[in-house]
């Protein structure tokens, strides 16, 4: 369980991120997860100075566009490029766009972090 997790929609993203920027919070990182039909994106922020973590979470369909937060936090440029490359998240207006080759080379697998059918089925079923 993550404390202080706020579920939002992707349209609210920039407004919510702006609130963090205005409060001089530090962007920590983001994480994406493949839910099968959707991608679940979580961004983490820290209220500096201190160790107070909070998070924003939203889900998007795999073909939906998501606004980039690099206009507010330049440092998000790496994580957004990474999600774009490894999960196929469609981020628009990236400050620096590595064109899908930040981490991956020309002959690397395409969207390698997406789960296979077996992985998704095993995850839904759960263990003992």
């Amino acid at each position: 369980m993550i404390d202080k997790l706020k579920e939002i929609s992707k349209d609210q993203l920039l407004a919510e991120v702006k609130k963090y920027a205005d409060a001089k919070a530090r962007f920590v990182t983001g994480s994406a997860n493949d839910l099968g039909d959707k991608l679940e994106i979580t961004y983490f922020f820290n209220a500096s100075p201190g160790m107070d973590l909070s998070a924003l979470r939203f889900s998007v369909g795999k073909d939906e566009e998501v606004p980039s937060m690099t206009g507010i936090y330049l440092t998000a440029v790496l994580i957004e490029n990474e999600m774009k490359e490894l999960f196929g998240l469609k981020v628009k207006d990236l400050a620096i766009d590595f064109g899908g080759h930040m981490m991956l080379a020309q002959d690397s697998p395409v969207l390698p972090m997406l789960k296979t059918e077996e992985q998704l089925a095993a995850g839904k079923k759960g263990g003992n």
């Binding site: 920590v28 990182t29 994480s31 997860n33 979580t42 983490f44 095993a122 995850g123 839904k124 079923k125 759960g126 263990g127 003992n128």
Partner: peptide, 9 residues
């Protein structure tokens, strides 16, 4: 920063 998600498996 480590984030982990388990699913019972």
């Amino acid at each position: 920063f480590y984030y982990a998600k388990g699913n019972g498996t």
